[in-house]
Design a protein around this nucleic acid. Structure first.
Lengths: 155, 155
DNA sequence: ATATCTGCAAAGACTTTGCATGAGA
DNA sequence: TCTCATGCAAAGTCTTTGCAGATAT
């Protein structure tokens, strides 16, 4: 069993199996890739990392696996404006914890921040409840992103 | 001069000219298209609407214009997860006002809400200040989206 | 045993680019 | 006049799909 830093393999596997899906070397490799430092990976990046664990893996399988993980709520998919989907573990109990993104609109740099998470979470919870009631939505997740110029790009 | 509901043509034109760019029928048409009801338009949708005002307009021009407007901060571009960019007027003083999105992850429906805008805005302002200070970003905008199942898709 | 997965290659969808012509200021 | 903008078509990128063989349970 390989070293994983950000996810509990048993939990992941159980969850995948629980949906009648199978655990395969490719899927392990994708989980491992996502576990390494350097979040907000594009599919291509996940593919390259995963290939180190499973040399024959194909890009299509990476896409399929990421889609599966996103469906199961284990991975969150987002776009920072460069038209490439990005993925990271969604598990709030993981090492990294729940966070939001600060994106540089010039160079694309992504900074994770947790600074206002407590207040944000509180507000978001209330908002979720309220919106859920008013619009009848069953709310599952949210995204908050700030856009601006990073220190380097400001000159 | 055509009828526009959501934007002040003088303001838009001034802003475009101010950047050394020109006012053309195509650009007018894109502004007009964005002004009609039915926000969160894809490029294709903007193209179709714009074609009613400017029959010869090309899709590439629509993309170029939307990019320009986004650069000037007049339009905001976002992605709700279906890998198509969506566009809407960014002007908070416009008829629609500042709002956020509630997206159905099943059918893609997008609901605008303003319900928690006041509290959100307050928090976001504080967050912007704090993040700006801590990470040195010059923050220009933000996105908040909630994802879930709409009433119809919940069965 | 058998429904699920996989890699590969081809197809698809959305967006950008090149270029000669056309047109605002 | 002189840039800047346009339309068209071709090219580019990212993502999805089809399929026969391989695999997990």
């Amino acid at each position: 069993m390989r070293n994983r830093k950000n996810h509990d393999p048993n939990c992941c596997c159980r969850r995948i199996r629980g949906h009648g899906r199978r655990i395969t070397p490719s899927r392990h490799a994708v989980l491992d890739a996502l576990s390494e430092r350097g979040d907000h990976l594009t599919a291509e990046e996940v593919f390259k990392k995963a290939a180190r664990f499973c040399p024959n893996i194909g890009l299509a399988t990476v896409y399929r696996t990421l889609e599966l993980l996103a469906e199961l709520g284990m991975v969150s998919k987002f776009d920072t404006g460069d038209d490439k989907a990005r993925y990271e573990f969604a598990d709030p109990t993981a090492a990294k914890g729940h966070h939001h993104h600060l994106v540089c609109s010039s160079c694309g740099k992504i900074v994770d921040y947790k600074d206002f998470i407590k207040e944000e979470t509180e507000l978001l919870h209330r908002a979720e409840k309220g919106l859920s009631k008013k619009y009848g939505f069953d709310i599952k997740s949210h995204i908050i992103q700030f856009f601006g110029l990073c220190p380097d790009c400001r000159r």
